[in-house]
Amino acid sequence: MSARFGRIPLDRIITEWEDGHPINPRLLAGEVAALLRTAAPADHPIHEAFASAILSAMPGGCAVTHGALVDYFEGAGSGRPPAMITTTTGSVPASAVLVWRQWINRLADEATSRALYVAGRAIPAGDSSNIAMAANASPTASQTEQPPLPSGSEPGYVAMRQREQRREGERRAAEQLEAKDIALQHALSREAAKDAIIATMKAQLQLSREEAEDERRRRIESDRARAELAEQLREHAGIIEFVNPENALSPVEGRRLVAIWCELTENGTVDAATDSGIGVGTLARDWWRKHVGEPSDTEVKRLRWALTWPARKGGGVVARRPRNKG
C-alpha cells in the first residue's frame, strides 16, 4: 500500500484498509478497538491533532474520546460500523470525524503485529478457515461457524509478546555486543600487528643507523689512512723519482745502489753482512758481477762506502766467514 498523508474521514478508514493491510479489515478494526481500550481511559479525549469532529453548523471543533473510537471500531469489526459517533459536544456523523492517517496507521500496524502474533500461536494446526480469515481471504465456511480468534491486546498475549520482544531485544543486544567484542578483538589484533611492524621497523632503523655509523667510522679511518699514505708519498717523492728510470735526472749508478741495498737487506729488514759473515764490499761485488759485470776496485770501494751503515764504519759488528763443514 502506498503511503498516504493528511486526514481521512473516519467512515473511510475500513475501506482504505481493504487496499493494503495483511489481515482482514474487520479483524483489524476489532484489534484496533482492543488496542485503544488498553491505551487510555474511555472518557479520555484524543488530541485534536489526531482526531477531531468539524461541523459547519458548530463553531470550532469537538473532541472525540477513546471510548467513542473504541465503540466505532468494535461496530466496524462486527460488520456494523455506526453512522454516528459521540463527541464531547454531542453525536456527529462518522464522516465528520477527521483522523490523522499517520496516527491511525501506527495503531493499525501495532494491532496487526499483535493479531499475527496471536494467530501464529492460537490457531490450531490445519485450521485453514481461521488462517484464511486472519490473512484477509475468503474462508469456505462462514465466519459465524468458526470460533473467534483471541485478541492480540488481551493482557496474557500482550505480556507474552512483550517477554518475547524483550528476549529478542536481549538476544540482539547480545549479538551486537558479541559483534562489537569481535570487532574490538580484531582491532586489537590489528593494533598488535601494527605495533609489531613498528617495533621491527624501529629495530631495522636502529640497525641501519649502527651500520651507517660503522661505515662512517670506516670511511674516516680509510680517509685517515689515505691521508697518511699521501703524506708518506709526499715525504718520499724525491726518493721515488730518484729511482724512477723514466726520470732523466735519475742516475743509473744511484738506481743500482738502491737496488743492491734493497736486495741485500730485504728492503731494510735484514743485516745481510752480520747474518752471512760476509763483508758489505764482497756482497756488493757479487751483486754487481751478477747484474752488471765485473766491477773495478774503485767501484767496489764506492759501493762499500755507500752501503756500509754507520755502526760498521765506526768499528761495529765484524763480518764473519762461514766455517767449513767437515
Rank of each mutant, 00 (worst) to 15 (best):
G6I: 11
P9N: 00
E16G: 02
W17P: 11
W17V: 05
D19I: 03
P25Q: 14
L28N: 09
A29H: 00
V32M: 15
L36H: 02
L36Q: 05
R37Y: 01
A49M: 06
F50L: 10
A51N: 00
S56Q: 15
G60R: 13
G61E: 07
A63I: 03
V64M: 15
T65W: 10
H66T: 13
L69S: 06
Y72F: 15
Y72G: 02
A76Q: 06
A76V: 11
T88D: 08
S91Q: 01
V92N: 09
S95N: 00
R101Y: 00
I104D: 15
T112V: 03
R114G: 06
Y117K: 00
R121C: 02
I123N: 05
S129T: 05
A132K: 15
T140V: 04
Q143F: 03
Q143A: 08
Q146H: 03
S151M: 06
S153V: 12
S153N: 14
E154C: 09
Y157G: 15
V158K: 00
A159E: 09
M160V: 03
R161K: 09
R166W: 10
E168C: 03
R171V: 10
Q176T: 08
Q176I: 06
D181H: 06
S189I: 05
A193D: 13
K194R: 09
D195P: 10
M201Y: 06
K202L: 13
K202E: 15
L207Q: 09
E213N: 01
E215C: 01
R219D: 12
Q232D: 08
R234T: 12
H236E: 11
N244L: 05
N244I: 08
N247H: 13
S250C: 15
V252C: 07
E253F: 10
G254V: 08
I260S: 11
W261E: 04
E263A: 10
D271Q: 13
D271S: 07
D271C: 07
A272T: 11
A273I: 04
S276L: 11
G279Y: 12
T282Y: 06
R285C: 04
R285H: 00
R285Y: 10
K290E: 06
G293Q: 07
S296I: 14
D297F: 02
T298H: 08
T298W: 08
E299P: 09
R302T: 06
L303Y: 03
A306D: 02
A311W: 02
V317W: 12
V318H: 05
V318L: 14
A319Y: 07
